[in-house]
């Protein structure tokens, strides 16, 4: 059973921020609850108070503005994202990543912002958000909104820069580069449904004829990581594509730092990083 706690379901953001201000570290935000309630049942977390943000209208907002980008509120579920018009095309890599998370029933409840705030190294939505230059919009009672690039948001296993009095109000994903193609490759222990043993998100497009490739990974470092060094490789002039791909594979495998755990050994994960990176880039290049 769950440990005891007080429950609040504020209907406005300011009310929620007041509660956070009051309870500080003793409070936890609940949206989907699919991670939080499991941690509470396992007695890893014993918050004195849960603040349910699902009744706050502005946090339920998901909106795409042509030429600007996509705003995903803190209470927006993965289901909302998957069903939002045109996202499958426009933000393909994100859409694909979201589709691999948990199962359809969990996606009815689980939220993208929750996925980010939980800060698991295996967060499937994170690599896609990283290569799309997503930013977290963080708010507290006194200082208003600050915007943090997702790369700076994660600081360790299950750790973010978020202070106890702050809420991630929404994630903003800028308009992707024109004619880009993205893909998320997730290797699991089974065919059906699992946490990523390794996840790789890739995005490719042409900038005035030059091939641009972005890559980011889950489950191979303390946080989801984007390997920016790879991006330089494809800007080089004096290498063949195959050489560039191998160079990218080499760099990625050096930048990640997988551990061995019950889901996979470091050795196997490193192999998957190489294989998946190679396959992913080849597919991206074929398309763009």
């Amino acid at each position: 059973m769950l440990p005891k706690f007080e429950y609040y379901s504020p209907t406005s953001l300011s009310e929620a921020l007041d509660l956070l201000e009051k309870y500080g570290e003793d409070a936890k935000i609940i949206a989907g609850g699919t991670d939080l309630l499991v941690s509470m049942r396992d007695r890893i977390l014993k918050p004195k108070c849960l603040i349910d943000i699902k009744k706050i209208p502005e946090l339920r907002r998901i909106e795409y503005k042509e030429g600007v980008g996509l705003t995903i509120g803190a209470a927006v579920t993965f289901k909302d994202i998957l069903e939002y018009p045109n996202l499958e095309k426009k933000y393909r890599v994100l859409w694909e990543a979201v589709k691999t998370i948990g199962d359809m029933i969990l996606r009815n409840r689980a939220t993208l912002v929750g996925n980010i705030c939980n800060a698991s190294p295996a967060a499937d939505s994170a690599p896609a958000l990283l290569i799309l230059d997503a930013r977290a919009r963080i708010i507290n009672k006194n200082d208003g909104v600050r915007e943090v690039p997702l790369e700076r948001f994660f600081i360790g296993v299950k750790k973010t820069i978020l202070k106890p009095t702050e809420i991630v109000k929404e994630v903003f994903v800028p308009e992707p580069p024109a004619n880009c193609y993205g893909k998320y490759v997730k290797v699991m222990r089974v065919q059906s449904e699992d946490l990523a043993v390794v996840g790789v998100a890739g995005l490719a497009y042409r900038d005035r004829g030059d091939l641009i490739i972005r890559l980011a990974y889950s489950s191979v470092a303390p946080t989801p990581i984007r390997v920016k060094e790879v991006e330089e490789v494809f800007k080089k002039k004096n290498m063949s594509l195959d050489e560039k791909i191998e160079e990218a594979v080499k760099i990625s495998s050096e930048k990640v730092s997988p551990i061995s755990d019950v889901r996979g050994s470091a050795e196997y994960r490193l192999n998957l990083v190489k294989v998946a990176t190679r396959r992913l880039i080849k597919e991206l290049v074929e398309v763009v």
Partner: peptide, 11 residues
């Protein structure tokens, strides 16, 4: 059952 995997419909 997160880490002790048994077959699902997709398997």
């Amino acid at each position: 059952l997160t880490d002790y995997k048994i077959a699902r419909a997709g398997d």
